[in-house]
């Protein structure tokens, strides 16, 4: 440890850190305050006497109630959850096998395949939704959850494959060689030894995939038409902005409730998540 003067640590570490945290968290704070602020305060000017633009003097649940009672928000939440979970599972399973194959098996074209998978990840969704929409229509999946459950993996599988491939490469190959000598088949060694050891990597890939599908907007907007099939991000925007009227209170309440599950998932696995992205396995 280097010995440093205290003021230096304050100036170069604590203050920038505090500024950074304030900057990142302020939108969340603003969202929360707006969600609990009565309309009278929301639309009042800042110059009004007793104005409190940065906090609320009369917190209210009217927007939350309105959101839950007048819109299909609970249905959207359920749709989002279901779609996110199913597409995460599909992507994880495919990503685990594909990542293992690319990391471990020597076969003709394996490197090309790895690069090709990465390139598919780089194709922007804003382009990809056009041909995908045609496919969805052709398969008559439009306006059903399957439209999203099957299209989200097109982005998630390349991502999971790459993340897991990197993680599998950090696991010493002697572990599975030893398992194979101990009596396991290659597949058995993968399932019994490599996957359990890779749990931090698998969890990070899963969390990331879950978050991406939870927040996904453009496919959900294009493939889902009726109000009861929408996901939270699309539902909130399309049902709570009517013409040029923004229902700010309900919008923010929807955003707040929509981000809670993701926050819970993150906080639950945060330790695994960090080791999954940064750490490796020591024998």
């Amino acid at each position: 440890m280097l010995i440093e003067r205290k003021w230096k640590k304050w100036v170069f570490f604590y203050l920038p850190m505090a500024a950074f945290i304030a900057f990142t968290l302020f939108p969340f704070y603003w969202m929360a305050v707006t969600a609990f602020r009565p309309d009278s305060e929301l639309y009042a000017t800042w110059r009004q006497p007793n104005a409190a633009p940065l906090w609320t003097l009369h917190p209210t649940l009217e927007h939350v109630k309105g959101l839950l009672q007048t819109t299909a928000f609970p249905t959207w939440l359920w749709n989002t959850m279901l779609i996110a979970i199913v597409s995460t599972i599909i992507s994880l399973v495919c990503g685990m096998f594909a990542g293992y194959a690319l990391a471990r098996l020597r076969f003709r074209g394996s490197e090309f395949l790895g690069t090709a998978i990465f390139i598919t990840y780089l194709v922007p969704q804003t382009l990809l939704f056009i041909p995908l929409a045609d496919i969805i229509r052709g398969m008559q999946l439009g306006n059903t959850p399957w439209a999203l459950m099957l299209t989200y993996p097109t982005i998630l599988i390349p991502f999971c494959t790459w993340l897991l491939m990197g993680y599998f490469k950090t696991i010493p190959k002697e572990l599975e060689e030893c398992a194979r000598i101990d009596g396991a088949t290659r597949f058995g060694a993968m399932v019994r030894i490599i996957f359990p050891v890779a749990i931090p990597g698998i969890l990070s890939a899963g969390i990331f995939a879950f978050t991406l599908s939870w927040n996904e907007f453009i496919y959900a907007l294009v493939f889902m038409a009726s109000a009861d099939q929408k996901t939270v991000p699309v539902g909130v925007i399309s049902e709570l902005i009517r013409g040029d009227i923004f229902f700010w209170g309900q919008l923010m309440a929807g955003a707040l409730l929509g981000s809670v599950p993701v926050a819970i998932v993150y906080s639950f696995f945060v330790e695994y998540y960090v080791t999954g992205l940064t750490g490796s396995v020591k024998g």
Binding site: E174, E177, V197, V281, G283
Partner: peptide, 20 residues
């Protein structure tokens, strides 16, 4: 023959103990 059918045991340099 695959390794498991050779009735051998191997000790590796990095021990290769299953960490979990």
């Amino acid at each position: 023959l695959p390794p498991k059918e050779r009735d051998i045991a191997m000790v590796f340099q990095n021990y290769a103990l299953y960490p979990h």
